[in-house]
């Protein structure tokens, strides 16, 4: 039946799922060269976002957005008393997490956001009508809608595609290819997870006691959004890198929200019935 419909409508069958692929971003290796950010913009032909000095260390692009799909943070911190003791400079290349339970994908009313055969979350540009619902849904502030009056794919939602086009041709994503320190590693997600566990044990053994992995299946942040197909090794609490402690998946509370709304609605319906009841008034 469905097959006949597909043939009739000339709809391609979706590609068969493959072993999921993803990123392991090991921030302990990042040197802040921003090669990933530039490689991403170049491969995806994304425009620059503006030329303004932020004053926040060497980060002048600030955050991920519709036209910045890799972004390198410079967490420059020191004690407020101006002693240089414990001063540190943490670098972290941020990216769409390609969540196992992706809030953006669940929110999307048109079906433009899909899960690809590689396990990544992808915006189909020919479907997206720019309703903008994925934007506030994402707990990480990743996806954004390009301005309606802009020059770049105006009024549609954009984010990292995990280089779907490159993956189709068996290439690794541009950022991972460009990263000179292997801070960004691309590969089979389970292999990457095993690698990350080994790396964490190694760092801990060497005294980096606050190192941790963010986005592993067993970690707290996976409670709602599941494991992240782009996960991280961090050197401090997630919030230091602007990452939520337990990213929320809106779906989890949706039934309760509908129920509350329904109760109020029913109460009002009952009140109206009573108000107009023949005996009243």
């Amino acid at each position: 039946m469905i097959d006949a419909y597909r043939r009739f409508m000339n709809i391609e069958a979706p590609p068969a799922p493959q072993r999921p692929k993803g990123f392991f971003t090991d921030t302990s290796l990042c040197i802040g060269c921003k090669a990933c950010e530039v490689a991403c913009k170049q491969w995806n032909q994304l425009p620059a976002d503006g030329n303004e000095l932020s004053g926040n260390s060497y980060d002048n692009t600030g955050a991920l957005g519709a036209t910045t799909w890799r972004h390198v943070q410079f967490v420059e911190q020191a004690k407020a008393n101006n002693s240089r003791v414990g001063q540190r400079w943490l670098m972290m290349s941020d990216v769409c997490k390609h969540c196992a339970n992706a809030a953006c994908l669940e929110a999307c009313p048109t079906g433009a956001l899909v899960r690809t055969e590689f396990g990544s979350v992808y915006v189909q540009q020919d479907i997206c009508n720019g309703c903008g619902y994925c934007v506030p849904a994402c707990p990480f502030g990743v996806i954004d809608r390009a301005p309606k009056d802009g020059h770049f794919e105006a009024g549609r939602a954009h984010k990292c595609t995990l280089c779907y086009d490159r993956q189709k041709d068996g290439l690794e994503p541009a950022c991972a290819k460009a990263c000179p320190t292997d801070s960004i590693q691309f590969g089979d997600i389970e292999e990457l997870q095993a690698k990350a566990r080994r790396r964490l044990a190694d760092l801990r053994a060497r005294g980096e006691t606050s190192a941790r992995l963010y986005g592993m299946p067993e970690s707290t942040e996976a409670a709602e959004v599941g494991h992240l197909n782009a996960f991280f090794l961090l050197l401090d609490r997630p919030e230091v890198y602007n990452l939520p402690e337990v990213p929320r998946l809106p779906r989890k509370t949706m039934a309760q929200r509908y129920a509350i709304s329904a109760v109020v609605g029913l109460a009002f319906a009952a009140l109206s019935a009573v108000a107009f009841g023949r005996r009243s008034g």
């Binding site: 950010e37 530039v38 425009p47 620059a48 976002d49 030329n51 303004e52 000095l53 002048n60 692009t61």
Partner: peptide, 11 residues
């Protein structure tokens, strides 16, 4: 443009 936005102003 990709390099300019990363270091846009003399400081």
């Amino acid at each position: 443009s990709w390099l300019s936005e990363l270091m846009p102003e003399m400081f």
